[in-house]
């Protein structure tokens, strides 16, 4: 039930943003349709949305999320410049391979965000997750270390310690 409420609020919020500048009578029309649609969607699919709805009302998770955001954007820009330099150099300095890294995150959302962050940051692209044993297979455009432990410390750790506070 709580999961349905969370989905309802999120759905209504996105709806209101999509139907943005609405004032006066327009606003109530949009609001009414939004409540109906978001209520229907939440009623049908709400139970699938999240398994731990009380995480959404814990304030410190949002604080860590807004700490994570600028760091993520900065890493993303660095990743792009790195890839562009590799592409425009005539000798194409790549040294690719798929390495295995460890993760201690357990929740689905946390793992998804970790995989997405790895994909958008320098030289790495997550290929598969072995959830039971906590391994991620990561394609690395410039393999610096084949060893599991050291690859983990280079690729995963800086995100993991923040993501653990947000999603676990």
């Amino acid at each position: 039930m709580k999961s349905k409420i969370v989905l309802f609020i999120l759905g209504l919020f996105v709806w209101l943003l999509l139907s943005w500048p609405a004032d006066g009578q327009d606003f109530f029309q949009h609001l009414l349709v939004g409540i109906l649609v978001a209520g229907f969607v939440a009623f049908m699919t709400g139970d699938m949305f999240t398994s731990r709805p009380k995480h959404f009302i814990q304030f410190r998770r949002y604080v860590w999320f807004f700490y994570y955001l600028p760091m993520f954007i900065w890493e993303c820009i660095k990743a792009n410049i790195d890839v562009i330099i590799r592409i425009i150099r005539p000798d194409l300095p790549i040294n690719p391979g798929i390495v295995k890294v460890k993760t201690s995150l357990k929740s689905d959302t946390g793992l998804t965000f970790l995989a997405n962050s790895i994909t958008l940051t320098p030289g790495t692209l997550s290929v598969d997750i072995d959830k039971e044993r906590g391994f991620l297979y990561v394609h690395w455009i410039d393999v610096k270390d084949k060893d599991v432990e050291r690859a983990t410390s280079i690729i995963v750790e800086r995100f993991e310690r923040i993501l653990r506070r947000i999603f676990e």
Binding site: I98, L120, L125, H139
Partner: peptide, 16 residues
């Protein structure tokens, strides 16, 4: 050269 490297370039650069 291959699918995985191409995905790296296309995903990162095109997303940002």
């Amino acid at each position: 050269p291959d699918v995985y490297n191409r995905l790296q370039a296309s995903t990162k650069c095109v997303t940002l």
